[in-house]
């Protein structure tokens, strides 16, 4: 087991998250993609703290914070989605293009 594999998996997960973030039409799926991104980041943090900082494991502390902040962010995100849904009656990302040129 080596650090690189963890990093590659995390990068792959990040890219999948980006792909989902850019291509999804459903707002909920966009939020889910963001969660994927955050998890990829957590994976990185955990891998680094394991392989490079096994004594102080600061990365794990960071991960805990990221998870809490991600939870809070998802809550706010869902609230925003709900607020938009109440007004526009849809969660299609392509319907939310009012602020253009």
């Amino acid at each position: 087991m080596q650090l690189q594999y963890f990093l590659l998996v995390a990068a792959a997960l990040f890219c999948i998250g980006i792909f989902g973030l850019v291509t999804s039409r459903n707002v909920i799926r966009v939020l889910m993609s963001i969660e994927l991104l955050l998890n990829a980041v957590n994976l990185n943090l955990m891998a680094f703290s394991n392989f490079l900082d096994a004594q102080a494991i600061k990365g794990q502390v960071f991960t805990v914070f990221v998870i809490t902040v991600a939870a809070a962010e998802a809550a706010v995100g869902l609230a925003i989605v709900l607020a938009i849904y109440r007004n526009r009656d849809t969660v299609d990302m392509e319907q939310f293009n009012l602020l253009k040129w």
């Binding site: 973030l21 850019v22 291509t23 999804s24 293009n97 009012l98 253009k100 040129w101």
Partner: peptide, 17 residues
């Protein structure tokens, strides 16, 4: 060039990436 400002936040994210 103003059509770059498409109004799609996903497009903005793509641009950033």
């Amino acid at each position: 060039l103003r059509y770059n400002v498409s109004g799609q936040s996903q497009f903005y994210m793509l641009t950033i990436v």
